[in-house]
Amino acid sequence: MGNKAKSLNLLGLAMRAGQLVTGEEGVLKEIRGNKAQLVLIATDAGASTHKRIQDKTTYYEIPFYDGFTQAEISHAIGRSRTTIAVMDAGFAKKLKELLQSEG
């Protein structure tokens, strides 16, 4: 199993553990509150959504990843979403490790 598949499985686990916030408004709220540990946005999200999330994560210095499609994210967490915030530091750390070693 590749790191991308492991990352998506970990997202599903984080969702079941209640450690994800999904949806653009919820994610923006967690970014502004400086509670999000990692933010993921679908590569096929709208340009304005993508820019808004990326600008906020840059300003608040929160790690940002945009390598999954909406279909991959939705399948992993069981809901149709384009934007996710990982709230738990442990899940975020493991995800970042998997995503960095993917390439």
Rank of each mutant, 00 (worst) to 15 (best):
residue 78 G to E: 14
residue 18 G to S: 13
residue 90 G to H: 11
residue 46 G to T: 02
residue 97 E to V: 06
residue 83 T to A: 08
residue 6 K to C: 01
residue 77 I to S: 02
residue 8 L to Q: 10
residue 7 S to R: 03
residue 43 T to K: 15
residue 65 Y to C: 02
residue 5 A to N: 15
residue 78 G to L: 12
residue 70 Q to H: 05
residue 67 G to H: 01
residue 42 A to Y: 07
residue 102 E to A: 13
residue 99 L to N: 04
residue 84 I to R: 01
residue 90 G to R: 12
residue 36 A to E: 11
residue 15 M to H: 15
residue 20 L to T: 01
residue 1 M to C: 09
residue 57 T to W: 02
residue 80 S to Q: 14
residue 39 V to W: 09
residue 14 A to S: 10
residue 39 V to T: 06
residue 62 I to H: 00
residue 94 K to C: 06
residue 31 I to D: 00
residue 19 Q to G: 04
residue 10 L to A: 07
residue 54 Q to W: 01
residue 73 I to D: 00
residue 31 I to Q: 06
residue 40 L to V: 05
residue 82 T to I: 08
residue 22 T to L: 15
residue 55 D to V: 06
residue 85 A to S: 12
residue 89 A to T: 10
residue 79 R to H: 09
residue 15 M to L: 06
residue 16 R to M: 13
residue 103 G to E: 11
residue 33 G to C: 04
residue 94 K to W: 07
residue 57 T to N: 05
residue 73 I to A: 00
residue 23 G to I: 01
residue 94 K to I: 09
residue 30 E to M: 07
residue 78 G to T: 09
residue 37 Q to M: 07
residue 32 R to C: 12
residue 68 F to A: 09
residue 2 G to A: 07
residue 58 T to K: 14
residue 71 A to Q: 14
residue 101 S to W: 07
residue 55 D to G: 02
residue 85 A to W: 00
residue 29 K to P: 01
residue 85 A to P: 04
residue 41 I to N: 03
residue 52 R to C: 03
residue 30 E to W: 00
residue 20 L to E: 05
residue 8 L to Y: 13
residue 10 L to D: 05
residue 17 A to K: 13
residue 17 A to R: 10
residue 23 G to L: 03
residue 6 K to Q: 14
residue 45 A to G: 01
residue 90 G to M: 08
residue 99 L to R: 04
residue 80 S to G: 11
residue 28 L to T: 04
residue 65 Y to Q: 03
residue 88 D to V: 10
residue 76 A to Y: 01
residue 99 L to K: 06
residue 39 V to M: 08
residue 25 E to D: 10
residue 19 Q to S: 10
residue 91 F to G: 03
residue 44 D to Y: 07
residue 10 L to M: 13
residue 43 T to W: 04
residue 55 D to N: 13
residue 24 E to R: 11
residue 81 R to Q: 13
residue 45 A to R: 00
residue 88 D to R: 10
residue 85 A to K: 04
residue 47 A to V: 12
residue 37 Q to H: 09
residue 97 E to R: 11
residue 88 D to I: 08
residue 59 Y to G: 01
residue 82 T to M: 11
residue 95 L to M: 14
residue 37 Q to G: 01
residue 90 G to K: 08
residue 64 F to M: 02
residue 8 L to N: 10
residue 74 S to C: 09
residue 101 S to T: 09
residue 50 H to C: 11
residue 19 Q to R: 14
residue 39 V to I: 15
residue 57 T to Q: 02
residue 25 E to F: 06
residue 57 T to A: 06
residue 42 A to S: 15
residue 48 S to P: 02
residue 29 K to F: 07
residue 99 L to V: 04
residue 68 F to S: 03
residue 101 S to N: 12
residue 56 K to H: 10
residue 39 V to G: 03
residue 66 D to K: 15
residue 86 V to A: 14
residue 3 N to E: 14
